[in-house]
Design a protein around this nucleic acid. Sequence first.
RNA 1: GCCGCUAUCGUCUAGGGGACUAGGACGCCGCCCUCUCACGGCGGAAACCGGGGUUCGAAUCCCCGUAGCGGUACCA
Length: 444
Amino acid sequence: MAMRLRFAPSPTGALHIGGARTALYNWLLARGPEAGQLVLRIEDTDRERSTAENIEQILEALRWLELDWDEGPIFQSQQAPRHHEALLELLQSGRAYRSSATADDVREWKARHGAERGFRGRAEAHGAVRLRVPDEGVTSFEDVIRGPVSFRNWHLDDPVIARADGSVLYNFAVAIDDLDAAITHVVRGEDHLSNTPKQLLVFEALGAQAPIYAHLPLLHGPDGRKLSKRHGAASVQELRDQGYLAEAVRNYIALLGWGHGDETILSTDELRRLFRLEAVSRSPAVFDERKLRWMNGRYLRALAASELAQRLEAFTGRQGLAAGAAIAHDKIQTLADFWPLAGFLYDGPADDPAARERVLGAEGAGPLLAEVRDALATAEPFDAAHLEPALRAIVERHGVKPKEVFQPLRVAIAGTTVSPGIFESVEVLGRDRTLERVEAALAR
RNA sequence: GCCGCUAUCGUCUAGGGGACUAGGACGCCGCCCUCUCACGGCGGAAACCGGGGUUCGAAUCCCCGUAGCGGUACCA
């Protein structure tokens, strides 16, 4: 029997890294050696938070990550008739009952029977619908990642599964939707571990077979707290906007809670082949953007020059970046690093007064730079291979350190002290623009 | 409070009773390369939460403690 998986985000905002990892793991399983289907379900029963923009954000994030699905998106809100039908079934069979008990009533019950004793209500003519939990026995399951997990029924409250107006609540809707979609494996975050017994009880009350569960460890920020906006690039869109490559992001987040021996760089195809739910760790992981940066650099450098140029053009919205891309290739870690490093090749020099003062204001920079200008004016052909010996000859002639010749030239053309290789940069800039900028530097 | 989950370098992890002098990766430090910044190469520092058991032997199994996290809504 093929695996049927689902990814079921609630559209309360952008897709965060934790959600992206959950989506990735489900996708990896559905596209792995065993193959299966992936159902996308939008849990939008909370109509106020589930806006069209939020839903679009999630779809956009999944598309950018290149994670596709086979069925859906199914909107939980549109399953209301079916939810209602199941609710009626439980009400009629006596597995659920109406109760007007409030939170205060529950508190009072706990005060009387002990905090560890689950709340039990009394059937009434109206009110919210609660699922009847037996007093005896345990509700347990074999979590693929955590092993046996069990809850004593005695401790469990009779959970509210529908409001007084008949609209169903999350834990009930999830169970019905998973059942209807014939989901075989529920792979989701650990924050749902405590919800599982409630959902299991719904399956049981309906006489249906529950899926297999796997609860992923949560992701934390560097401060050990649950990951949120305050931890920098926490959403998929932010990662994209900061110049990370989708394939690098997939590789990195796959490694948050899972590993394969000593391997660190794993292509998406390798991930699909090697990923195993049983090997997912049980403890929470901390998202470390520095490692993502390093990994992104690895992926960037592995790109063909033409491919890198295309990605940079898409990212910056500028055209004709091939030459700059070629000489900046080994020096950038994200697509966003390109423009600060090589933008001077396309726009004017950067504005870095401190660099100009320090490098061009120094004694002796003038005469050397004048010689550089003369060498540049006569170099033929005007390419890196011929520029290098011509400029190094000046270094030789004066017995100075190479940087004393190259840094003033760099600041003159780039406006700052950091750039791709100086000979390559000059070649790409071209003779006219280079001489123009060197003259401007000499004239100041 | 109650219910539940978790615990190896700063971080991600390998490890599943003897192969552990605890391995790899990021980061950090040093050296090399070098026109800047990177890239790359070489080397280094850096961890089994604590206490009891079980066992000839425990990072690995059990118990207790501690800490962190999650849940505890007529939210999802």
